[in-house]
Simulated assay, not measured.
Amino acid sequence: MDKENLASKIKALRKRRGFSQEQLAEESALSLRTVQRIEKGETVPHGDSLRKITQALKVNPDDILEWAPTEDKGYLTVLNLSGLSFIFHPLLGIIIPIVMWILKKDKIKGVDDTGKKLINFEITFTLLIYALLLVWSGGKYWIWDVSALDVAISLLSTFSIEASIVLLLCLYNISLIIMNVIRSKKGLKSSYVPAIPFMR
């Protein structure tokens, strides 16, 4: 691993622990100047310094030395497809992508960006669907009820405009996910719009 990758990994791990450079220096019993030089890539920690840093960050030395974001289009595909879980319940369309994003956001290229966009879109979608259902049903449907797609299909039997709108929104969600699966296989960035930027 080159100095820059090692420096950025240590910095990322420090921030994940919620440490300032001063706190890392204190926890690792290294000087602040040493921590600053390591994070700037001016020096590479070896031996005792590496051991102290890894102990302070509560990670394995191998986690730092072998780390480099890898490319995995398969994982990006599955991450995008995880949004389809909204079909079973809209909250699953948020929870499953969040779990997948947390697990690999620092390990696989593109997961952080794709995950945030997908999660923002699914939160926006869920809020919109339930706002519409609550208004149109007079409070009959709630978040813990059946999925929005089930409600739309059951309401569609009455051929109402409301049910058609909910069904169209569900179909738009599905088509957007499929489009982003194709984009990820081509190595392109994902695009989920519209979405309120809850996660930046």
Rank of each mutant, 00 (worst) to 15 (best):
K73W: 04
Y75G: 03
N60C: 02
N80R: 10
P69R: 09
V59R: 00
S85W: 09
S82C: 06
E66F: 11
K73I: 09
H89V: 06
Y75I: 04
H89L: 14
A68G: 10
W67L: 04
P61C: 05
S85E: 10
G74F: 05
F88V: 06
S85N: 09
E66Y: 11
F88D: 02
E66R: 02
P61G: 05
P69H: 00
F86D: 03
W67M: 02
V59C: 09
T77E: 15
E71V: 12
E71P: 00
F88E: 04
W67F: 15
P90S: 10
T77M: 14
N60G: 00
P69D: 04
L65Y: 03
F86E: 08
I64A: 07
G83C: 10
G83V: 08
D72Y: 01
F88T: 11
I64R: 00
I87R: 11
L84V: 10
T70E: 14
G83Y: 07
H89K: 13
T77K: 14
K73L: 11
Y75E: 03
E66G: 07
L65M: 13
T70I: 14
P61D: 05
F88M: 10
S82G: 10
D72N: 15
L79K: 02
Y75N: 02
V59W: 02
W67N: 09
I87L: 15
L81K: 06
A68V: 13
V59M: 01
